[in-house]
Design a protein around this nucleic acid. Structure first.
Lengths: 94, 94
DNA sequence: TAAATTTGGTTTATATCATAAACTTGTTTA
DNA sequence: TAAACAAGTTTATGATATAAACCAAATTTA
């Protein structure tokens, strides 16, 4: 009947981040912040969680002298996102 | 870009309840409990929240001598569900 | 060059939420 | 009448989302 919804993805901000990352090769912190409209603190926490789950990879580099955090979705993340969408659909067939 | 997700509907159990109710004229507590697999306590709490939000109406009657709680989705609930689905789609266009 | 501001974040505190365990009220069965 | 069951409700707790506060380095301004 209803499939379980991965709690890691069933969060507005984390879902937005994954949604953005799935469409691009990579995206940095500032880009994600602007696109999602999230506060930096909240975004930082949610990126950590996605990273720890292995759904995204996080690379910390420098753009010139300024720090730059680059995020990329992983194959595991793509699969999780896909599964989440499938599960969601079991709730939306009204 | 991303639309807000109504926090009242962005909950696995409440979403399941709404999903069930949108397809039928009415459903009682026991039916909802069986279909969702939720515990009675959790279901009771979430039904209350949906009721207080005006998304469903709750009628307490008796089936013979046993109590029976009947739930129905309201027009407001239908609209909220519809809006939620629309908002969700802004996250899934990958 | 010193002070103020901006950038790019992280850490911490809080308020809310989802959930299950425990409880209640009444009914049926042995 | 005691035990078991039915249909919920209340309560306790642990997790979660979120923003406020903070920090270090770089840049701009006076």
């Amino acid at each position: 009947m209803f499939k379980e919804l991965d709690p890691l993805l069933h969060s507005q901000l984390r879902l937005a981040v994954m949604s953005l990352l799935i469409g691009v090769a990579e995206a940095d912190f500032v880009f994600l912040k602007e696109k999602t409209g999230a506060t930096a603190g909240n975004l930082s926490v949610q990126i950590d969680k996605l990273n720890e789950a292995g759904y995204i990879s996080v690379e910390k580099t420098f753009a010139g002298k300024m720090p730059r955090t680059i995020c990329r979705i992983t194959p595991k993340g793509v699969k999780a996102f896909d599964d989440y969408v499938k599960a969601l659909k079991t709730y939306l067939n009204s």
